[in-house]
């Protein structure tokens, strides 16, 4: 559902007339991306707020070259990069401390119909991917999350991260290699 929003074919300044509607529409995605990148609810909320503040301040500069969703995600990616650059040490310390919230993972049941064994296996795999993503460099992680969590295609990712498509592919490949190494032989 949200994937279709990304590829909304009606970009333009008209999108920004109703900024409240824009926020309601895109805030869950932005917040999810922030949360997955930062793994800190407070920072994610702050940066989501910052993202929309910046978008509101720069809404005149939006020319409709991309969809509003892509534009907002671009702002979010820049914010995350700034945040990481300024708070690298603090961020990593916090990340290592609550690398994975066990309560969240414990609550999460991928599929009610699966057997406990399958649920345990799924949890194990998710934990492995999660920790692997946490150790990825910032660009690889952003590309990975945009591709496999937000389901954006490569051109959109290239627009968001301001990279060429080939670079995006390279980052994706390296990120996947790291994740696969973390998962071990299971594939």
């Amino acid at each position: 559902m949200e994937g279709s929003l990304v590829s909304d074919p009606a970009p333009g300044a008209g999108d920004l007339q109703d900024f409240d509607a824009l926020v309601r529409l895109h805030r869950p995605r932005i917040f999810r991306f922030m949360l997955a990148s930062l793994r800190d609810r407070e920072s994610a909320e702050n940066l989501t707020q910052d993202c929309f503040v910046r978008a509101y301040q720069a809404r005149e500069q939006f020319r409709g070259a991309a969809s509003a969703g892509t534009w907002l995600m671009q702002i979010a990616a820049n914010l995350i990069r700034d945040h990481e650059g300024s708070n690298r040490l603090k961020f990593w310390r916090r990340t290592l401390r609550h690398d994975l919230d066990p309560a969240d993972l414990g609550n999460w049941i991928p599929d009610q119909r699966q057997s406990p064994e399958a649920v345990a296996l799924a949890r194990e795999q998710v934990t492995a991917v999660w920790s692997a993503v946490a150790r990825l460099p910032e660009r690889q992680r952003t590309v990975f999350l945009l591709r496999f969590v937000e389901d954006m295609d490569l051109l959109e990712i290239a627009a968001v991260t301001n990279m060429k498509e080939g670079t995006v592919k390279t980052h994706l490949f390296r990120a996947l290699q790291t994740v696969r190494a973390r998962l071990g032989g299971k594939s």
């Binding site: 869950p28 999810r32 609810r41 969240d104 969590v149 994740v179 299971k186």
Partner: peptide, 21 residues
Amino acid sequence: RLETPLSLFRGFVRHWSSQHR
């Protein structure tokens, strides 16, 4: 090759984010 873990990961992240939201 990683389709299953990645889909699981996607599901988890979405679930987590929606929980917070």
